[in-house]
């Protein structure tokens, strides 16, 4: 019994901790979640984590909240999902409630601005570090279609600024088409024997 409770506490604490450091947009939480739940705790595999992030990205609403729901549910069921939702939502909730009482002073505070500017570069490094590993793993699989999708999606979103939803739909379609073609080929090879 105690072991079970410990997992929920660890799940909440980890999620809360991660959410408290998610500066610079909701997406930043993804690399942090990957480091924590895949690399440190080994509660989920990298590929499955990416699957969940894909679903989170494809759903309406903040990626961070969606990912929290999916991750929590995957790790510890409905209660796990509730725990992670709470862990994700509480840090911003508390921070903003406190700040809303003196937000002008906060917004204009030079120390706050200096620290945040410094953290911006730091966050970029964390994201780069995690994504270099993820990208290397994609390349390691030696699947040319996956690499093309990765490069194409990057160009589409960073340079062409195409809406993420379109990219997701197209890439999902390509993935599905690829598997169906592979299956057809296996079937054909089987028939011709």
């Amino acid at each position: 019994m105690k072991n079970q409770k410990n997992i929920y506490i660890k799940l909440f604490a980890s999620t809360f901790y991660i959410s408290a450091f998610t500066f610079g947009g909701g997406f930043v939480i993804i690399p942090l979640m990957k480091k924590k739940f895949v690399d440190d705790l080994h509660w989920i595999e990298e590929n499955e984590m990416l699957n969940l992030v894909a679903i989170a990205q494809s759903s309406p609403g903040a990626v961070a909240v969606n990912a929290a729901i999916l991750l929590g549910y995957r790790i510890k069921g409905i209660l796990g999902a509730l725990v992670t939702i709470l862990g994700t939502v509480l840090p911003p909730f508390i921070t903003l409630t406190v700040i809303s009482f003196f937000y002008e002073a906060f917004r204009d505070n030079i120390v706050v601005n200096a620290v945040l500017k410094g953290m911006q570069a730091g966050i970029a490094a964390v994201i780069a570090d995690v994504d270099l590993n993820l990208g290397a793993n994609v390349v390691k699989e030696k699947d040319i279609v996956a690499v093309i999708i990765m490069v194409g999606a990057f160009i589409a979103t960073f340079f062409l600024k195409i809406n993420v939803m379109y990219i997701i739909i197209v890439c999902g379609f390509i993935g599905a088409a690829k598997i169906l073609i592979q299956m057809k080929k296996i079937q054909k090879d089987g028939d011709s024997r």
Partner: peptide, 17 residues
């Protein structure tokens, strides 16, 4: 299949962000 197409996409989106 769909997910195999989406995983590299996510890597790209993270890179872009």
């Amino acid at each position: 299949g769909v997910l195999s197409g989406l995983r590299p996409t996510i890597v790209a989106l993270i890179a872009s962000a």
